[in-house]
Simulated scan of single mutants.
Amino acid sequence: MKYFWNLFKNIDKTLLLLPLCFGAISMVMVSSTASQGHFVFDKYVTIQLLAYFLGFIAVGFILLIDYKVFENWEQPLYIFSLFFLLTVYVPGLGVEQYGSRAWIDLKVMYLQPSEFVKITFVILLALYFCRNHDSLWSYKGVIMSALYASPFIVIVLKEDLGGAIVLCFIWLAMVFYAGIDYRILGKFACIFAISLPLVYRFMASHQKERIDAFLHPTNLALGGNYQVWQSKVAIGSGGFWGKGLFQGTQKELKFLPVQKSDFIFSVIVEELGMIGGAVIVILYTLFLYRIAKIAYNAKDNFGALIAVGFIGMFGFQVFENMAMTMGIMPVTGITLPFISYGGSSVLANMIALGLILNVGIRSKIINF
C-alpha cells in the first residue's frame, strides 16, 4: 500500500485532472449535438462515459508497471502491432465506415486498431532510437529509421489518411529529438515535398477527393467543401460569446457534418464563441506543456522519447482538427483528442496518458 501511495504522490496531478476537464466538455458537447435547449443522456454520451471509465482504469493499471518492461518486448510488439492493423481485412471482422476500412466489429462496439497502434508505434520508435542514437547523423541511419516505421505508415495510409499523417508526425518529432542532423532532415523534407505528386497517385479515391477539395476551396461541388463551408459559417456566427450552450443553429439544422467527432470544435465555437474556443486552446496548451515537462525531467532517454512521441501525436491531432474545421488544413478525419466522440479514440488517448504519467512518476525518487 505504501508503494502505491508513494507512486501517487509523484504523479502530475494537473496532467491527470485535465482529461477530467476534457471529459466534462466532451459529454456536454456530444449531448448538444443530439438536442437543443437541454442536456440529453443518450447512447453516445453513455458510450463516451464508459470509454472514460475504462480509460481511467487503464491508467491506474499502467501506472503499476514500470515502462522499462517494454525494453524486452520490441520484436513481439512490432509483429503484433502489424497484425493488429491487418485485422481490418479479415472477412466478417473488418468493416468500412466513412469511406475507410479502418474498424473491426466486436459486435458490442466498433474498434479502430490504428488508434491503439499509435501507442505501440511510439514505444517501438523510442526503443529503436535508443538503440540507434548515433546513426542518425548519417543518411543511412535516417533511412533505416524511416524503413523501420514505414510498414505501419503504409498499412494505415491504405486505411486512413489522417492516421498515417499522425504516424509521420510522431516519427518526425521523435527523430528530431533523438538528434538528427538538421541538414539531413532538410534534404529529406525536400525529397518528401517533391514526391507528393507520386504519393497522390497511389491514394484511394476518397483521399484524393479530400486533397482536391482543399486545393479548390471555393468549388462546393467537390466532396467536403460544402461541409467545411458550413463549419466556417458555424465558427464565424458564434462571435465572441457564442449563441449559447445547446443553441447552435448550424448544428441543430444538421448543416454541420460529423458533429460528434470530426467537427465538434465547430459546435463548441458556435455555441460558446471565441471565448469557448480560446479556453479549449489554453487547456490543450497546458496539457502539452505538462507532457514536455515530463519529457525534460525523464530519468532516461527511453522515457523522454515516449513523452516526445506523444507530444507529436497529440500536438498534431489538436492542430489538424481545429485547422480543418476552419478550412486551413485538408479534412482528414482526425478527431479532437479527449473531446470528440469515439470509444476507441478516448480509450487509446487515456492509455497514452497512462504511459506519460508512468514516465513522470518514475523520474522521481520513490521512498519506501
Rank of each mutant, 00 (worst) to 15 (best):
P19D: 02
L20K: 00
L20Q: 03
C21M: 14
A24V: 12
A24S: 12
I25W: 01
S26K: 09
V28T: 13
S32K: 04
S32A: 15
T33M: 08
T33P: 09
A34Q: 13
S35I: 08
Q36M: 14
Q36I: 10
F39L: 13
F41C: 06
Y44G: 14
V45M: 10
I47Y: 12
Q48P: 12
Q48E: 12
L49D: 09
L49P: 13
A51N: 07
A51H: 04
Y52W: 06
F53S: 10
F53N: 01
L54A: 10
G55E: 03
F56E: 01
A58W: 08
V59A: 09
G60W: 06
F61H: 11
I62V: 15
L63E: 04
I65V: 15
K68L: 07
V69S: 10
F70Q: 05
F70N: 07
P76F: 02
P76R: 00
I79M: 02
F83G: 15
L85G: 06
T87E: 10
P91Q: 08
G92M: 06
L93S: 06
L93E: 06
L93Q: 02
V95P: 00
V95N: 01
G99F: 02
S100C: 06
S100V: 03
S100Q: 00
S100Y: 00
R101F: 02
R101C: 04
R101P: 04
A102I: 01
A102V: 01
A102C: 01
D105V: 04
V108E: 09
Y110N: 14
S114P: 07
K118N: 00
I119S: 01
I119A: 03
T120V: 01
V122P: 03
V122Q: 02
I123V: 12
C130V: 14
C130E: 13
R131P: 10
H133I: 15
S138W: 04
Y139F: 15
G141E: 07
S145G: 14
A146H: 11
A146Y: 11
A149G: 00
P151K: 02
F152E: 05
I153S: 09
V156S: 09
E159T: 08
L161D: 08
L161K: 03
G162M: 06
G162C: 03
